[in-house]
Amino acid sequence: MDDDSGGRGLNRDGTIRREGSLSRVPAAFAPVVAAARSRITGAFDGTRLHSAYVYGSIPRGTAVPGVSDLDLLLVLRTRPTGADEAAARAVEAGLDAGFGQIDGVGALLTSTDSVTSELERHDLGFFLACLCTPLLGEDLAGRLPRYRPTPLLARETNGDLVLALPRWRRRAAEAATDAERRSLCRGAARRIVRSGFTLVMPRWRGWTSDLAESAEVFARYYPGRPERIEQMRLAARVGRSPSADPAVLTTLIENLAPWLAADYLAVHGEKAPRP
């Protein structure tokens, strides 16, 4: 059941295939992943940590030394505390300082109850089951369903893009350095491209996390909007190689994102509210 179907990231039964594997980690990043496993184990004992995962370009095998970042998901047995957050930030700092291959580290914290809840089933649950590669502990994907590229999945993964706009605008206004602008550019661009892809995902009937491919899939369904296609291609480029140019941020945050958020709500509706 786990053979790729037609190059669209699906199993033979039409469910979304898990996209990463430790066997695909490029050789240059193998020491980084090994160190992540060691540092996480040292920072969280078995009474706190349920499982850990790596996601993004490193387990997909597409990471570029000096450009790609290391993305981690840490699932705790109970809701994360302030001490847990501090431990995760220490793991991030240690790995970032120790390896020139990576351009930053991000460790998300959550709990088993949250991942497996009905509310998060088609968002965080999907993220873990299909986009994350097990690194430590029991793989929670076994407690979650098999996912398909449906309108429900589209709504629950990216049907809240509109909520990100005020935060991005505030960060853009407050950014004082090129590093801050590049960080915002990378995060906003990746979110925009993912939203552009999932907007048309049910019609394309497949899954990809590749930014360039996502932009081109989006382009297939908006042939009459060449300006949006070019903006989405720009977002895909700066999602990989972020820009500090304020004009790029303006294009993404003030032009493309508001249009995309409105179209998304019109097509798929609003994501279920979170507490």
Rank of each mutant, 00 (worst) to 15 (best):
Arg79Asp: 15
Pro80Arg: 12
Pro80Asn: 06
Gly82Ala: 14
Ala83Phe: 03
Glu85Cys: 05
Glu85Lys: 11
Ala86Ile: 01
Ala86Tyr: 00
Ala88Glu: 00
Ala90Met: 03
Val91His: 02
Ala93His: 11
Gly94Gln: 06
Leu95Arg: 07
Gly98Gln: 11
Phe99Glu: 01
Gly100Thr: 07
Asp103Val: 09
Asp103Gln: 15
Gly104His: 08
Val105Met: 14
Ala107Thr: 04
Ala107Leu: 10
Thr110Met: 13
Thr110Arg: 13
Ser111Cys: 10
Thr112Leu: 11
Thr112Val: 15
Ser114Ile: 09
Val115Pro: 05
Val115Ala: 09
Val115Glu: 04
Ser117Thr: 05
Ser117Ile: 02
Ser117Pro: 01
Leu119Ser: 13
Asp123Phe: 09
Leu124Trp: 09
Gly125Phe: 06
Phe127Asp: 08
Ala129Pro: 04
Cys130Gln: 05
Leu131Arg: 08
Cys132Asn: 00
Thr133Gly: 01
Pro134Tyr: 00
Leu135Ala: 03
Leu135Ser: 00
Gly137Ser: 06
Gly137Tyr: 06
Leu140Gln: 02
Ala141Pro: 05
Arg143Lys: 13
Arg143Asn: 12
Arg143Gly: 10
Leu144Trp: 03
Leu144Thr: 03
Arg146Phe: 09
Tyr147Val: 05
Arg148Thr: 10
Pro149Phe: 06
Pro149Arg: 01
Pro151Ser: 10
Pro151Met: 03
Arg155Pro: 01
Arg155Ala: 00
Arg155Ile: 02
Glu156Arg: 04
Gly159Leu: 00
Leu161Cys: 05
Leu163His: 10
Ala164Met: 11
Ala164Trp: 09
Leu165Arg: 04
Leu165Gly: 03
Pro166Arg: 11
Trp168Val: 07
Arg171Gly: 08
Arg171Asn: 06
Ala172Arg: 13
Ala172Phe: 14
Ala172Val: 05
Ala173Met: 12
Glu174Ala: 15
Glu174Phe: 05
Glu174Val: 08
Ala175Lys: 11
Ala175Ile: 09
Ala175Tyr: 12
Ala176Trp: 08
Ala176Tyr: 10
Ala176Ser: 15
Thr177His: 10
Ala179Trp: 11
Ala179Lys: 12
Glu180Asp: 15
Ser183Lys: 14
Ser183Glu: 15
Cys185Tyr: 10
Cys185Met: 07
Gly187Trp: 06
Ala189Phe: 10
Arg190Met: 11
Arg191Trp: 09
Arg191Ala: 12
